[in-house]
Simulated scan of single mutants.
Amino acid sequence: MVRTLALPRRPAVRLTELALGASQAGNLYRAITNEEFASAVDTAWDAGVRYYDTAPHYGLGLSERRLGAALRHRPRDEYVVSTKVGRLLVPTPEDAYRRDPEGFDVPASHRRVWDFSRDGVRRSIEASLERTGLDRFDVVYLHDPDDHWEQAATEAIPALVELRDQGVVRAIGAGMNQSAMLARFVRETDVDVVMCAGRYTLLEQGAADDLLPVAANRRVGVVIAGVYNSGLLSRDRPPDEARYDYRQAPPELVERARRIAALCGTYGVTLPQAALAFVRRHPAVVSTVVGVRDGSQVTDAVRRSEAAVPDEVWDALVAAGLLAAPPSG
């Protein structure tokens, strides 16, 4: 059964240890049907998963619409939904005959406009509430504010604090593909939780040096996304054409992943099982988001998450030079 963990600073917000990431509901890389994604939510729900993550960026709002529809008849107090702010969707009907240039198989009927202003945050949340049909969001993250620190820290975070105080959202934070700026958000702003994508995995442990220690010290929860590094760690044996950070994986990384897989295999553990188990061992980590497109992928994720991984695996990986630092138990 999937465990539930409370946010240290917001114990009323409880995240399941395994979370459903809805980027593929936005037709990431290829189109899926409404029925396929609905089956993902149904299967996740039956397995005990109660945390669902989305964003306007995912399919130009399609992910939010599909997630809202899939959850519409579920008891609202029994699940947690996070979305993100920072990219406003501006209609561009003149470009609807094109495909979205940012990797989602949807018409380019809108364009993304960066906006971390107070007004932009409020407009984004209002639009997301309308798309999902929800009455509130449990968690709202700033989405990839890498090039917008000043506005994000001085306007967006205070706007989210206001909304948290008003009860419109219950917890606030930032989600990024880097750990250094997330650590800065934890140190310098009033966030409850952050989402770190791809920087704390079996292949990379950079977040262990900056983000995770300060988050544990300040009692800020860390949600790990990109646990498979965009796909490189998602199969028992990584193929030559595996993705890494949304691109074709370099050959040397594919080979390293295969070496990790081979060593894990000597202990009866698959590469994806080890990838999920590794991140959960750190005490600052409160949830792991896995992107899925249908029910069968959810079933695989749950089975992998429930697999027992002996401690000897981590010691062996460190000894072989395949793991930079042992995970905290």
Rank of each mutant, 00 (worst) to 15 (best):
H143Y: 06
E188F: 00
R122T: 14
T154P: 05
A174S: 08
R131H: 15
Y141H: 08
L142K: 06
D135K: 11
E204M: 10
D165P: 04
S109I: 13
E204A: 13
A171V: 06
E150Y: 03
G198N: 09
W114D: 12
R170C: 05
V194A: 00
G133W: 05
L203H: 09
G167L: 13
R199I: 11
G173K: 06
Y200P: 12
D138Y: 07
R199F: 10
L160M: 00
A153W: 01
D119V: 15
L134G: 04
G173F: 04
H148M: 06
T154C: 08
R131A: 11
S109T: 15
P145F: 01
V168I: 12
V169Y: 10
V168T: 08
M181H: 06
H110E: 14
C196N: 15
R136N: 10
G175D: 09
A153T: 02
F116V: 00
A171K: 02
A171L: 07
T201E: 14
A156G: 01
V193F: 09
Q151D: 02
F116G: 00
R164H: 00
D147H: 11
R111L: 15
A127Y: 14
M176E: 04
R164C: 06
L203C: 13
R123A: 14
Y141E: 04
A159P: 01
V194L: 07
L182G: 00
A207V: 09
Q205F: 10
D147R: 11
H110M: 13
A174Q: 03
F137A: 08
T189D: 04
D192E: 04
L202E: 14
L163V: 05
R187I: 02
L142W: 07
R184P: 02
E188I: 02
A207M: 08
D190A: 14
D192H: 06
R136G: 12
R131S: 12
G175Y: 07
A171D: 01
V121S: 06
G167F: 10
V186H: 00
W114T: 15
M181K: 07
M181P: 05
A207Q: 11
D190F: 08
G175S: 12
V140G: 10
D135R: 13
P145V: 05
G173E: 04
V161Y: 01
R118D: 15
V194Q: 03
F116I: 02
T189F: 04
V139E: 13
A156E: 05
G173V: 03
P145K: 01
R199T: 12
A171S: 08
C196M: 15
L129W: 07
E130F: 13
I172K: 04
E150T: 06
F185D: 04
E155C: 02
C196F: 11
G133T: 03
L182E: 00
Q151K: 03
L134H: 07
E150I: 02
L129H: 03
C196A: 15
G198C: 12
P145R: 03
R164W: 05
R170K: 12
F116A: 01
R118P: 11
R123E: 12
L134N: 06
N177G: 10
